[in-house]
Simulated scan of single mutants.
Amino acid sequence: MHVTLKGEKFQTNGSTPNVGETAPSFILKNLDDSNVELSDYKGEVVILSTFPDIETSTCARQTDTFNKKGKELSNTTVLSISANTVKEQEEWAKTKDVDTILLHDSERSFAKAYGLYIEGIDKIARSVFVLNKNGQIVYKEIVKEMADDPNYEKALSAAKKEEAELS
């Protein structure tokens, strides 16, 4: 699959999982350097929000938007994932009231498993996956132009629909 960054074309390492499939499992580190596993959230709705670099305006806005909007959801956890270092993520989070869980993919294992790794620039392609309580993908967006925002409303709507299923 290819994506662009300000019009320049980049190839990702593979194909992404599709709607209806079980999301690939992963273990990443959070800001406390503790392991976070996807299986920790079984039974909950999960938004996986990936972005290339927390230090850019679009990525910061994406993380901030899902952080704020995620607070309005009752049974949804937002996992925000990038290849940034812990220090870079901590610096960003210092000025925010962060409820979203920031995860760093230092080994690029998540990015590679999800077909989102862009080796040429060592980044993760911008994407959003919404998972139901069973870990199945119910919504997927790969943002073709990485400088663009994802469709927040569609992702949040998918999460709300899944939350309704939990009731």
Rank of each mutant, 00 (worst) to 15 (best):
G20C: 08
E21Q: 15
P24E: 09
L28M: 07
N30W: 07
D32W: 01
D32M: 03
S34W: 09
S34L: 13
N35V: 02
V36I: 13
V36T: 08
E37M: 13
D40V: 03
V46N: 04
E55C: 13
C59I: 04
D64C: 15
T65M: 14
K68W: 01
G70T: 00
K71N: 12
T77N: 08
V78M: 00
A83T: 13
A83E: 11
N84W: 11
N84E: 08
K87L: 15
E88N: 13
E90Y: 05
E91T: 15
W92P: 07
A93S: 14
T95W: 13
D97C: 06
V98R: 07
V98K: 08
I101M: 00
L102D: 00
L102A: 03
S106Y: 08
E107Q: 12
R108S: 03
R108P: 09
K112P: 02
G120C: 09
G120F: 05
D122M: 14
D122Y: 12
K123Q: 15
R126F: 11
S127N: 11
F129H: 10
F129A: 05
N132G: 11
N132V: 13
K133W: 09
Q136P: 03
I137T: 01
N151C: 04
N151Q: 05
E153G: 07
K154E: 14
S157M: 08
A158V: 10
E165F: 10
